[in-house]
């Protein structure tokens, strides 16, 4: 299982690099889809059907929306950077990667071993008493809407706020003709 996970992660990283570097926006978006669909396969391999369903539907619809938006405007990547800006961006990226790697090496020591969630105190309570406490036979629904209801409310509010932001930024009514 670990080998297939590593292969999928390498595929996702390659897809991300192609999406960043391609000059054609349409092929960039399609290679962005590699990340999402490989993530779906990873969720299936890790036996998380709830997440796999949500991931595959969200990925398909967002790809359709992005492709429709690109076909409506332009396919060319029009951003131009000078050499100084490129060097600064490279250095910033390298520093971020190194800091993240060091922090991850420190922090990942304290996580439980891969695939042994039963040793966590809260997860054990959810698995043992979730059905008795909530009455929902799908444990994921019991966790996200009962034990962790605040998180789901925050998530829904984030989606609402982002849509309000998109409509406010891209509104066409009342825009000045310049």
């Amino acid at each position: 299982m670990l080998t297939s996970l590593i292969l999928l992660l390498v595929l996702m990283i390659l897809g991300a690099i192609v999406a960043l570097e391609s000059k054609d926006l349409l092929s960039g978006i399609i290679s962005l889809g590699i990340i999402g669909f490989a993530l779906t396969v990873i969720f299936i391999v890790l036996q998380a059907p709830d997440l796999a369903i949500v991931q595959i539907i969200v990925e398909t619809l967002t790809l359709v929306i992005l492709i429709a938006a690109v076909l409506k405007t332009t396919r060319k990547d029009t951003s131009e950077k000078t050499d100084t800006v490129k060097i600064i961006l490279w250095i910033t990226g390298l520093v971020c990667v190194i800091v993240f790697m060091l922090a991850a090496v420190k922090a990942l020591q304290y996580l439980p071993e891969f695939g042994s969630a039963e040793s966590l105190r809260m997860a054990k309570v959810y698995i043992d008493q979730g059905l008795a406490l909530t009455g929902a036979s799908n444990l994921v629904a019991a966790v996200i809407l009962d034990f962790r209801g605040y998180d789901t409310l925050g998530e829904a509010t984030v989606l609402f706020t982002s849509v309000v932001g998109i409509i406010a930024v891209l509104r066409t009514v009342g825009r000045k003709q310049s």
């Binding site: 709830d50 949500v54 539907i57 619809l61 799908n138 994921v140 629904a141």
Partner: peptide
């Protein structure tokens, strides 16, 4: 609340 899925997947 019975099978995999839920509000997010169905809404999308």
């Amino acid at each position: 609340h019975l099978t995999p899925g839920g509000g997010f997947a169905g809404g999308i």
